[in-house]
C-alpha cells in the first residue's frame, strides 16, 4: 500500500536471509510472496502452499499459467522437482504437526510479546483467519513482514493488540521497512537492525511500546 516496490523487495530479501538450506517454508500473500526470488541458488527449500502443494517453483511465464495450479492467493505458480499435491486435511496436518520450519506472514498489529492480530477488524475488515491461526501457532519460526505504521501513521507494533488476536506469543521476528526486531515473549522486543537514514529515537516515535537495542545494532542493507 504505502510502500514502493523497492522497499517491498528489500523486506522480502531480508526475510529470505532467515531461510536455511533444507527448510520447509510457508509464505503468506503480499510481500512474503516475493521471498522466493531471494532464496540463494543451490538451496534445497520446499515452499508449501496451504491450498495443497509442497514445492512451489517460480511464477509461470504469461500464457503458460495453469488455472488448477495456484498458490493460496489464487495466483498461478509452477512446481519444483519433488513437489507433491494433497488435500486440505493433509496440508494442515503438516502445519499442526510442526513440520513447517518458517512461516512468513503479514499482520495488522503485533504486540511486544509476539501476539499477532491479522485476521479481522470488527465492523470494518473481515477477511477471516484462513490458515493463519495454525501457521502462527505451530510453525517453528514465525516471521512478520509488515509496514512499520498503518495508513494513518499509527504504529502497528504495540503494547497490546487492539484487534482480535490470531495467536498469542507467536511472532519470533518482525521485519518492517525501517527496522528488524527480535521478539521474546518474556523479555519483549530487541532492535537488531535499523534503516541507515533513521535514528533509534525516530523508530521509538513510530513504535507504541518500548524495546531494547541490540549491542550489536546493524544497518538494514
Amino acid at each position: 500500500m504505502g510502500l514502493g516496490m523497492m522497499e517491498r523487495k528489500k523486506m522480502a530479501r531480508r526475510a529470505a536471509k532467515e531461510i536455511e538450506d533444507g527448510m520447509i517454508v510457508n509464505l503468506g500473500i503480499g510481500i512474503p510472496s516475493l521471498v522466493p526470488n531471494y532464496i540463494p541458488d543451490g538451496y534445497s527449500v520446499m515452499i508449501q502452499a496451504e491450498n495443497g502443494l509442497l514445492g512451489i517453483g517460480c511464477s509461470p511465464k504469461t500464457g503458460f499459467e495453469n488455472e488448477n495450479l495456484c498458490n493460496a492467493a489464487g495466483y498461478p505458480v509452477t512446481t519444483v522437482k519433488g513437489a507433491s499435491y494433497f488435500d486440505s486435511a493433509v496440508s494442515f496436518g503438516m502445519i499442526r504437526k510442526g513440520l513447517i520450519d518458517i512461516t512468513i506472514l503479514g499482520s495488522l498489529q503485533v504486540s511486544e510479546k509476539g501476539d499477532i492480530a491479522n485476521w479481522i477488524v470488527p465492523g470494518k475488515r473481515v477477511p477471516g483467519m484462513g490458515g493463519a491461526m495454525e501457521l502462527a501457532q505451530k510453525a517453528k519460526k514465525v516471521i512478520i513482514v509488515m509496514e512499520h505504521v498503518n495508513k494513518y501513521g499509527e504504529p502497528k507494533i504495540v503494547n497490546e493488540c487492539l484487534y482480535p488476536l490470531t495467536a498469542k506469543k507467536s511472532a519470533d521476528l518482525i521485519i518492517t521497512e525501517v527496522a528488524v526486531f527480535q521478539v521474546d515473549s518474556n523479555k519483549g522486543l530487541t532492535l537488531l537492525e535499523k534503516k541507515k537514514e533513521m535514528s533509534v529515537e525516530e523508530i521509538r516515535k513510530r513504535t507504541a511500546c518500548s524495546f531494547f537495542v541490540s549491542e550489536n545494532l546493524k544497518l538494514v542493507n
Binding site: 496440508s91 465492523g123 477471516g128 483467519m129 491461526m133
Partner: peptide, 27 residues
C-alpha cells in the same frame, strides 16, 4: 475460513444480511 477475496461477502456480513461462521482452515 476466509471471505477476504470477496468484498460482497464482507459487506453482507457487516450489514447482518448473512451469517458467517469462521473456522481456522485446518480445523
Amino acid at each position: 475460513s476466509h471471505i477476504g477475496s470477496n468484498p460482497v461477502a464482507g459487506e453482507q456480513m457487516t450489514n447482518g444480511e448473512i451469517e458467517v461462521e469462521f473456522s481456522p482452515q485446518g480445523t
